[in-house]
Design a binder for these strands. Structure first.
Length: 345
DNA sequence: GATGCGTGGCA
DNA sequence: TTGCCAAGCAT
């Protein structure tokens, strides 16, 4: 017989009182909640992104835009540039749209899960997390950590994503009415430091005595996941057009791959393109090298080619001073390409 | 429900 | 080196 759900929650909260991680966007257990703006900003940045990667971006965003009104007043291009390197750039577009939506309603975030869920970029997880952490609402907060902890705790061996319903129901059963925000963060801390994906530290786990996964088998094998597909390799070309200490940069259009981000002009390898596009000017080309970069669903071998000519490049873009290239907000692929070009040109 | 969407760290 | 993984969302 497993421990009661009340026991699981109170045991975990007791563990959290002693072992909560100290994080820039978090209040210690039992202290007043951080500003909703802080909770929201950190939760969006943390979507599919590690704590270590988020920390400097969180600090910089707060420095530039200390409240949601300031962020709403910013140009979208500034926000995109500040997000450069963090990945999943639709988050930055939605972040800015969300800031403007909140500013429209007086600068105050809604304090219920249902209302939060309507804002751009806030899905089931993030809406529940903000409702619980910023507003103390009882909400069932399920992220990958919680999925892992719950799948092991209740020995749910149905493969993901099919197991999501059972996992959510189990998470609902153990979520307490009080301190739901601390409980959610405790589950995530447990998942990131104890109930880890590989090599779980069961001897350190406050819930080990009631863990069905530990009793009945190998907890590290849970949750069961479907095998991943192999990544195709695509190839493409990006052009380095440098003149008088400046380089030609474009802004990528649309909401697809790296949409809204500044970039070197390229031949259309993106968004299902075949990389057959032509160069932005008809002039002498000099291969500089190849940049390899792996995205979520494919790997890219990007050939970086210098073009020397006097004509204006085709299309919309701007000349960017090389000494300010760090502030251009290039996503990592193009930051790599620029680094290569500067070294090899 | 499946797919597209970044990046860096780790074993 | 390669594959897996990390506080998901939109369509």
């Amino acid at each position: 017989m497993t421990a009661s759900t009340e026991t699981i929650a109170s045991t975990l909260l007791g563990w959290y009182d002693r072992h909560a991680r100290t994080l820039p966007w978090r209040s210690p257990p039992g202290m007043p909640a951080p500003a909703p703006y802080w909770v929201w900003l950190s939760e969006v940045m943390l979507q599919q992104t590690t704590v270590a990667a988020v920390k400097p971006y969180f600090a910089r965003f707060l420095d530039i835009w200390p409240d949601v009104g300031a962020l709403a007043a910013a140009e979208e291009s500034e926000v995109m540039a500040a997000w450069a390197g963090l990945g999943y750039y639709s988050r930055a577009r939605n972040l800015h749209a969300c800031a403007r939506a909140v500013a429209e309603r007086g600068g105050t975030f809604p304090d219920t899960e249902d209302e939060l869920r309507k804002l751009p970029g806030l899905g089931a997880y993030t809406a529940a997390a903000i409702a619980a952490i910023a507003f103390g609402r009882r909400a069932v907060v399920v992220d990958a950590n919680v999925e892992r902890v719950v799948a092991r705790l209740f020995a749910i061996d149905e493969p993901l994503p099919g197991a999501r319903k059972a996992i959510r129901e189990a998470a609902d059963r153990i979520t307490p009415d009080e301190r739901a925000g601390d409980f959610a963060q405790a589950m995530m801390d447990l998942g990131s430091s104890v109930c880890t994906s590989r090599d779980p530290k069961c001897l350190l786990c406050p819930l080990s005595h009631s863990c069905e996964g530990r009793k009945t088998g190998n907890p590290a094998s849970l949750p069961v996941k479907a095998p991943r597909k192999a990544k195709p390799v695509r190839s493409g070309t990006a052009w380095w057009i440098e003149r008088e200490g400046r380089v030609w940069l474009v802004t990528r259009q649309g909401t697809g791959m790296l949409g809204g981000m500044r970039a070197l002009p390229d031949d259309g390898w993106h968004a299902g393109g075949d990389g057959s596009g032509s160069a932005p000017m008809d002039a002498a080309q000099t291969p500089l090298g190849i940049v390899r970069h792996t995205f979520t669903h494919f790997a890219l071998e990007l050939s970086v080619v210098a073009i020397d000519g006097e004509a204006m490049p085709d299309g919309t873009g701007r000349w960017w001073p090389l000494e300010d290239l760090d502030e251009a907000g290039l996503p990592t692929l193009f930051a790599k390409a620029a680094r290569l070009a500067l070294a090899e040109r």
